[in-house]
Amino acid sequence: MTLEMLFDMALVGAVVVAAAYAINAPVLIAGVFVYIVFGVLLSLVWVRLGAPDLAIAEAAIGAGITGAIVLDAARQMGMERRRNPRLRRWPGWLSWAATAAVGVIFAGVFLTVSEGRGDLPQRVQAELPRVGVENEVTAVLLSYRGYDTWFEVGVLLVAALGVLALRAPGESPARRFRWDPPAVADGAADMLVPGGILMAGYLLWQGSRGPGGAFQAGAVLAAIAVLLTLLGRPPIARVSDRARDALLVVGFADFLLVGLVAVTLGGALFEYPPAWAAPMILVIESAVAVSVAVTLSLLFAAGGAAGDASEGGVP
């Protein structure tokens, strides 16, 4: 038993305990806090497993956006202390037996899996010079499987359109938190805003060489936007509806356009000629980062509905 393993066990144990508490904590708000901790712990796991790209994404999304979204939702949907109701379809022992069986089956199957098969990692590495970026994950995301990533940006776009479609007539999707944040908080935010923008730029630029990339950069920007929204200065309220729509769609559209440009240069869709690949990928990534940032901050800002039932009811 090496120290590494002890550390891994402790970390996995912490993740599992946090997951169990997040769902089963008697008080909803406690579960939500533990869930945020769960996200942070997961990013530690990604670091341990050699996936810093994921760790950055998880940290930015978990600490910055999801955290705020779930806390805000928990505030609205009750912070009740009573034991939360559960479905009781099956008797207790049977459900526990079924749970145990599911767990054992999953663990059993997972343990039969050995480290990866096939030579895909070698191929990824071998073709890297033609891709134009050094970070393998970015290469997979934007070049080898760029088409997937385009669809993924589409998924974000659909979520944003869905949220916009939900609003009542005449309602602005951005709401204002009306309170007087202490000057300390405003001051801290003023320091963090340029910091966040720098950080996003760094991640975007860094993404072609080391861990980072469009999603991470976009998520950091979105988190900063969420912070400002919480302090009563939502950035999304500053742009017109049209500009907002344009920002939402720019990632998806720009991705497609660059893909089509590749066709006019004589390749397949999304086939960037090696000489042009690096700048083309950077153009895509910048646009995607903008769309990710606007979409994620919109997903937070649009949360509070008009006619909020609990309005004023909660301290």
């Binding site: 096939g118 895909l120 191929r123 990824v124 073709e127 070049s143 080898y144 499987r145 760029g146 088409y147 997937d148 390749g267 397949a268 869709l269 999304f270 086939e271 960037y272």
Partner: peptide, 13 residues
């Protein structure tokens, strides 16, 4: 067939 991004399977889609 159409190889997206010019990368043939299994590397590409």
């Amino acid at each position: 067939e159409y190889a997206m991004g010019g990368w043939r399977a299994p590397l590409g889609i």
